[in-house]
């Protein structure tokens, strides 16, 4: 029998198929880098709501999703959008106005939670966070946890080191696994079966992918299987973890993709300014998100000149001497 492992589908269909109201999702990247923005904008266009979002440090994607009212619960370590918004603006407003529930962790805790999920473990131990309010203050209440089988009953647990004082640690702090319904990441290269090659920092994308029931990959380049198989050392995600592959060039714009393009600091600043004011923000969304039928149409609004400015120098992987606002 001939193998027919072709997972390539249009992004619109991938979101329709895998991201539902109330889904538990995680998105890859870090603050202003490799956020799966085309997928984020598609989720917003499809008006998906009540999402439970997991991330370690996220910025642009998280703030757009919150700004569009897609998120009701959030488990994170950090919400910042680089220089344009050291604290994500829509995130801060939503928390201050009690519009979303947020539960705080550290970056390592969130990374370990995804890793535990990827390993099929209930938890992993760390030595981070003893004595902090991250340990004692819960964003999701005990009763909510009890009533929702998708949320673990306890936030974090401290226990005595079961190996005595081995390695000098008297106690360990246990972080519970996360197994999202869907993880979406954007990568430089993927093939039709879903094998991925990430260039530059992988952040926690690999753990997020492997922890997840369904995985949507958006990619800059959709390449032949042979190209990735010639250098398997450069591949971080084998196809067995992946549900759908969507070819979306510039799919992380306005965030950066190492080796391809820089973040668009002008766009991020425009977003930050709009985010501070409800009327301006609605105009911003109408123009850039709802006013474009897909990512290609969105990029048409941005224009080729701006794309040329942020295009990466092949030597450095970023746009050299780009004016950064």
């Amino acid at each position: 029998m001939k193998s027919s492992l072709n997972k390539v589908i249009p992004l619109k269909r991938a979101i329709e198929q895998y991201v539902k109201n109330s889904s538990h999702i995680s998105i890859g990247g870090f603050t202003i880098n490799r956020n799966p923005m085309a997928a984020v904008y598609e989720i917003i266009r499809q008006k998906i709501s009540d999402l439970h979002l997991y991330a370690h440090s996220n910025g642009t994607g998280l703030d757009e999703l919150i700004g569009a009212g897609c998120v009701s619960k959030l488990e994170i370590a950090y919400a910042g959008n680089g220089k344009a918004a050291p604290t994500c603006i829509r995130f801060a407003q939503a928390v201050q106005n009690n519009e979303i529930l947020v539960e705080d962790y550290s970056n390592y805790m969130m990374s370990l939670r995804f890793m535990a999920g990827a390993m099929g473990l209930p938890f992993l131990p760390t030595l981070s966070g003893f004595g902090s309010d991250i340990l004692t203050k819960w964003g999701l209440s005990k009763s909510m946890r009890k009533s929702d089988p998708k949320i673990v009953d306890e936030k974090l647990i401290v226990m005595d080191n079961p190996f005595g004082n081995w390695t000098g640690a008297s106690k360990v702090l246990l972080v519970p696994a996360i197994n999202p319904d869907v993880t979406i990441i954007h990568v430089q290269k993927a093939d039709a079966t879903g094998t991925c090659s990430i260039q530059g920092l992988a952040f926690a994308d690999i753990e997020q992918v492997k922890a997840s029931k369904h995985v949507i990959i958006t990619c800059e380049k959709l390449v032949k299987k042979e190209e990735l198989r010639q250098n398997p050392d450069l591949n971080q995600i084998p196809f067995i973890h992946v549900s759908a592959v969507c070819h979306v060039p510039l799919g992380a714009y306005p965030t950066a993709v190492f080796g391809h393009y820089d973040y668009d600091s002008q766009y991020l600043r425009r977003f930050a300014i709009a985010a501070k004011n409800q009327d301006k923000f609605k105009k911003y969304q109408d123009k850039y998100i709802y006013g474009a039928k897909d990512h290609e149409a969105f990029l048409d609004i941005i224009g080729q000149e701006r794309i040329d400015t942020i295009t990466a120098d092949p030597r450095t992987g970023y746009s050299v001497n780009m004016k950064r606002d």
């Binding site: 370590a77 994500c88 201050q96 705080d104 550290s106 970056n107 760390t126 902090s132």
Partner: peptide, 12 residues
């Protein structure tokens, strides 16, 4: 009253 970005890797 004011929400900041959060721990990031700071607590770690």
């Amino acid at each position: 009253e004011i929400r900041f970005s959060g721990s990031g890797g700071g607590c770690d």
